[in-house]
Structure formats: C-alpha cells, structure tokens
Write a protein that binds this DNA or RNA. Structure first.
Length: 431
RNA sequence: GGGUCGGUGCCCGAGUGGCCAAAGGGAUCGGACUGUAAAUCCGACGGCUUCGCCUACGUAGGUUCAAAUCCUACUCGGCCCA
C-alpha cells in the first residue's frame, strides 16, 4: 500500500509540527511505506477532552495518509501520573477509576479512527498488558541501565518541578522511563517506529527514541505539535466559562460542544481551523478572508463548530446542534413551534417541574435554583438585581412569578442567563 | 528522628487580639458597547427568612468580654540536618 507523500508538508503548513527527530530520516521513512505510529493517552479522566483532540486528529491524518495508528491507553502509566506540564504532584487514581475511564475513552477513539480498515486498521493497546508483569529487576536492568540520571534531571518537566516548592516524587520522576519502555515494547512487538504527542511530551518521546537506539541500534522517530494554549498561556480545554470541553456526549452535549466553538474569538479562528479540521489550507484561507469581510456573521466560527461537532459527534448531532443554536440565537422565541421546543429540550439544559409550581406566587428564585441556573438563592437574587435573567426574552426582576400564561405551548419556558446561557423549563402534570 | 518555615475564600496572596465575611491581584459571573468576537468601562463575587443572623482562615481543644491572629495537641507540606 502506498502512503501519501504530502503528509509532513501538510502538517508543516498547518503549523502542527513543533519538534521532530531527524526530519529528513523521518520524511524518507514515511515515503518508503506505512509506518506504525503511536499516541498515548492516560485515562486520568472519565473521557477524552480537547486536550487530546490534536492527538486524535493527527492519528487520523496519519491513517488517512496510509499509516497505521496505534492509540495507546495508559492503563499502567495512568497510575503513576505524568509530571510533564504539571506544576504539582498528582493524586493517584485507583484501579476502578482507571478501568471506568478506560471504558469511557474507547467509543471516542472509534469516532476518529477506523479499526476495520483493510490495510491499515487502527489498533488500541493498553500498556498495562506489558507493564503489570514487569519485574522491578528486569526494569532496572533493561531500561534503567540505559538512561542516566543526568539525562533525566535535565528534562524540562523535571527541572521545573525541582525548582518549585513542592518538589517531585520518585514515582512521577520515573514516569518517563515507563513511557520510554512503552515505546521500546511497541517497537519490538508491534513494529511501531514512531511516537507523536504534544510538545510537552518531547522529553519523554526523545528518551524513548534513545532507548530504542541503545537497545536495538534501530532508528525510531518522534514528532510533537505545539500545545493548544489559551491567551493566558494555560492549556486549552475549557470553555470561556471554565467548563471542560469533553468529547463524550454524556459529559458535554453536542449543543454545548458546538457552542464552545461558536464562541471562539476571531484571532484564534485561523489557527483552530488549521489544527482541528480537515479543511485544506486553501479552503481555510478563503474562509478566514470571507469571515474578515463580515465578522458579525461569524461564518468562520460556524464552520469551525460544525466541522468539529461533526467529527466528534457525527453529522446528525452536528446538524441538531446548529438548528438549536439558530433557534435560540436567531430570532424571537415566541415564534418557535412545539417541535422546535421538543428538539431544544434535547440540546439545552432542561429541567422538568410539576405544574403545581406555577401556582406558587413569587416562584422565580426557587425555580432558578432548582434548575441549576443559579447556585444559591443569593446568587439568583444577585443575577436578577443585575438584570441578568430573561424569561421568554423579557428581562425580569425579583418578585416576578412564572405562571401558566408565561408558558409557550402550555409547557415550555425559556430562561436566558446573561447573553450566552440558555435553559429550558418544562412544566408537566404530576403523577 | 531533630531543626525550621509554613497550611487564609475558586487560585495566588495580605492580615499577627477587636475597625475581618477577611486588603490586593487573577479567574468567574452579570451589565454597557458589539458580532454569541476582542479591547475597554461599571458592578457582583460564603449562605440565609438579607437594615439582621449563621458558617468560615489545616483539625481538635484552651485562654479572653473578644481569636484568622495567643496557647496546647494533632495533622499535612517545603527546606535543612541525621
């Protein structure tokens, strides 16, 4: 099977290459034929999030170019905690949590990678498989012997932590050896010649490359991309509101996922389109240019949001998220029909109440709290006082009551908090 | 094990007996301006039955009219010594 010779150039054009091992050797090897390439994810959270997005997309780019992707779940390394990019020691996760997290990431992987493709199917591996049975003596002899402490201490991630107040535990210090061992194992058992990761992984990746060379004399390859950072320099991964952007529909609905990208600022658009979509660089240039002509139409954000939502959640979910957004931000809510409201109820945070709540006078504050629109009665009062709540598009004050006549289609009531957050209240008959 | 410094609200960080629900900054949330953008400005930012009350400054006790501030024990973390 032949491979796409333009892969490296495309990644370069997108600005997705931060560091590589010997660039020419890598280009030659990729041109020669399919390469097995791995990207490791530690299951430290119940699902994957934006932080893993570039990795998944890059694996996909490799697969589309004819290479063989290996997503590696860090069932073993997840128990240790990678100090890279962390300023303080991690809490160790228990076995049960890890297993549950692992189960959570598999479906997401399937969205991105083809595991059934004839010639170069993706293969999911878990480093527990070869790590749990590893004896400490073997480990020290086969891995530790080939690495000097000097080398390890020189790594950026370790240096930072040694300079800090909290120090670094031996456990986390050892993390890079386990990762290097993974690479070696994959090289020997899966003919995996390449590891990719975010730039914070560079130290760990190059250590693995070195280990492979010392143990086998062979040349392995590494590639990292720049980290996706927010303006303040912190890792990307949260919405403006500080909510983690999950890739699992259970943890973040497609609508909210879509909204997270719709709200992206103009300055970030080009970069995000290049890094996170499969649109060609030419298409992106065009899109960014037309966006600049009429920024208020937000064509750039719309495209980014729908491309990404489709990638992560599928075409149907992406269309539904776009429809819901159009209904909510497009015009007067009063004009929406029952079907649209029912559709919205699936997309927007919706709370169901018994109709009897409508009979309480002055029920607004308690409804806001019960629907988790405000976290306390004090906050609800504050929001109302600051003109932050609109019921059915009308700003309301303290003391307002939601009654039967306020409902649309005798069931729904739409509450806005601020400009961007929308909630639906649904009133139904009690049992 | 010894010594030493420290543990304050979402985070950083002031405060060393009353004027402390606790300075300042960041984050966040509302408002104005806009384009569901950025920048800027304004306001809020423990809870409640809100002119008052309750809960909070590592944990548990104690001294005092009064403690985040003093004392005791415990606990956790940094650093130094062994």
């Amino acid at each position: 099977m032949s491979t796409d010779p333009k892969l490296l150039d495309d990644l370069t054009a997108r600005g997705l290459i931060q560091d590589t091992t010997d660039r020419q050797a890598l280009a030659d090897r990729l041109a020669e034929g399919p390469v097995t390439v791995y990207y490791g994810v530690d299951p430290t959270a119940p699902s994957l999030h934006v932080g893993n997005l570039i990795g998944l997309l890059t694996l996909r780019r490799f697969q589309q170019a004819g290479h063989r992707p290996v997503p590696l779940a860090g069932g073993a390394t997840g128990m240790i905690g990678d100090p890279s990019g962390k300023s303080s020691e991690r809490n160790l996760l228990g076995d049960d949590d890890l297993q549950a997290n692992l189960a959570g990431i598999v479906p997401v992987l399937r969205q991105f990678l083809d595991f059934d493709e004839g010639e170069n199917p993706a293969k999911l591996l878990d480093n527990r498989a070869w790590t749990v049975s590893l004896s400490i003596l073997d480990f020290l002899r086969d891995v530790g012997k080939h690495v000097t402490i000097n080398q390890m201490v020189a790594k950026e991630s370790v240096k930072n932590r040694m300079a800090g107040d909290d120090g670094i535990s031996f456990t986390e210090f050892s993390y890079m050896l386990l990762q290097a061992h993974d690479f070696l194992w994959l090289f020997e058992h899966e003919r995996c010649e390449m590891q990719i990761g975010g730039s914070d992984q560079w130290g760990n990746i190059s250590l693995g490359v070195d280990l492979i060379r010392r143990r086998t004399g062979a040349k392995a390859h590494g590639l990292t991309w720049p980290l996706l950072l927010q303006k303040d320099g912190s890792k990307y991964g949260k919405t403006a509101g500080g909510e983690t952007i999950w890739l699992d529909a259970e943890l973040m609905s497609p609508y909210r996922f879509y909204q997270a990208w719709i709200q992206v600022e103009d300055d970030e658009l080009r970069k995000l389109l290049l890094w996170l979509t499969f649109l060609s660089t030419a298409e992106i240039d065009e899109l960014v240019a037309s966006h600049a002509e009429a920024p208020h139409r937000r064509v750039g954000q719309r495209r980014l949001a729908s491309e990404l939502t489709e990638l992560v959640h599928g075409a149907d979910a992406a269309a539904a998220a776009a429809d819901a957004s159009a209904a909510i931000f497009g015009g007067p809510v009063a004009q929406l029909d029952t079907m649209t409201f029912e559709m919205l109820a699936d997309e927007v945070p919706t709370t169901r109440f018994d109709r009897s709540r409508l009979d309480d006078p002055d029920n607004l504050v308690s409804l806001l709290v019960d629907a988790s629109i405000a976290s306390s009665r004090s906050e609800a009062g504050r929001l109302l006082g600051q003109n932050g709540i609109a019921v059915n598009d009308v700003k309301v004050d303290l003391g307002v009551t939601i009654e039967r006549s306020s409902l649309y289609h005798d069931r729904f009531c739409l509450v806005r908090k601020g400009k961007k957050s929308v909630f639906l209240l649904e009133f139904v008959d009690g049992d």
